[in-house]
Design a protein around this nucleic acid. Structure first.
Lengths: 162, 162
DNA sequence: GTGCAACCTGAAGTCGACTTCAAGTCAAGC
DNA sequence: GCTTGACTTGAAGTCGACTTCAGGTTGCAC
């Protein structure tokens, strides 16, 4: 099954080449992330550039963006032609700082764990991990990947150990 | 509202002290993550140690564990008494390597972005980012945080640029 | 002994990112 | 021109981690 005709891909071909399911691609189209022309018989035909767009979406997801955020990011790139180096640099640096934040949070967490291994405590009053988890959890449900430490969460009346 | 009586906490008190909603605590109980005794009138009363247990759950979630995995992890710790230093060290080191993996993936992604900024390409054939995203996305739906690059995904018949 | 906040239950709803399903239509190779 | 696989649609289902709701009960201060 080589490419059937000129530059337009069927949804099946796009799926195969992008590694996504056709259902996902339809979903993306509904969200406005990608666009398809239609044959007289109402079947989708995707421009080859859609492959690039889809890849962009997946990459953005890996960085932690929601599809809604991806839509915004895509809106900033030129509509359906190749983005310039500048366009791309802006996006990529934004993503990098996002990644940096995520890494920083992970390292913070790791440092806490190290401390806890040292002390072996799991002490309610002393353990940094507890104080980390304590109030650190209002990031809502759903696709949280790694969130939120919340320093200085006010002095609690010290409880006895359990 | 000081602690009303001895060492048992109502669900409201536990909620306040742990920073979780009562609904979440009931949910945790249903999953078997925490345990409550009951008054004659069927109201929950939590041991003080539950606070520790809840903190453990939240900390584990931050590391990226699902509640189901947390249940497993909790099962490895002594039932409702303070875990020993050894118990804890085992868990914490496991978590650390998890964190390390996550960090590594993020750094991998970041490196790719840096490369892409350099080349400014968004080239279908050359850009590492595309090849990363290309087949990297079968981690199922839901709380994926940062996943999966999939090296060596077979040579595709090189497409022209879009 | 009464008022009311806090508690109880099970069922259903929510969110994001999809997948699955049913029932029908299109494209193209023979 | 017919068959068959790829496509179409909208609606509903899934998953994890909860929240919200409705309708009823308990605990405790006054």
């Amino acid at each position: 099954m080589g490419p059937t005709r000129h530059d337009l891909l069927t949804i099946g071909q796009l799926a195969e080449r992008s590694g996504l399911a056709t259902s996902a691609l339809r979903y993306y189209e509904k969200l406005g992330l990608i666009h398809a022309e239609r044959t007289t018989g109402n079947q989708r035909r995707f421009a080859r550039s859609t492959l690039r767009r889809v890849a962009f979406v997946r990459a953005a997801q890996q960085v932690g963006l929601s599809l809604d955020e991806v839509r915004t990011a895509l809106a900033r790139l030129p509509h359906d032609r190749a983005p310039s180096s500048q366009d791309w640099t802006a996006v990529a640096t934004a993503w990098q700082s996002r990644i940096d934040r995520q890494i920083a949070e992970l390292q913070h967490m790791k440092a806490k764990l190290t401390g806890c291994i040292g002390c072996g405590c799991l002490s309610l009053t002393r353990c940094a991990l507890y104080n980390a988890a304590d109030r650190a959890a209002e990031a809502g449900p759903g696709a949280r990947y790694l969130l939120t430490r919340d320093p200085a969460s006010g002095p609690e009346p010290g409880p006895r150990e359990a």
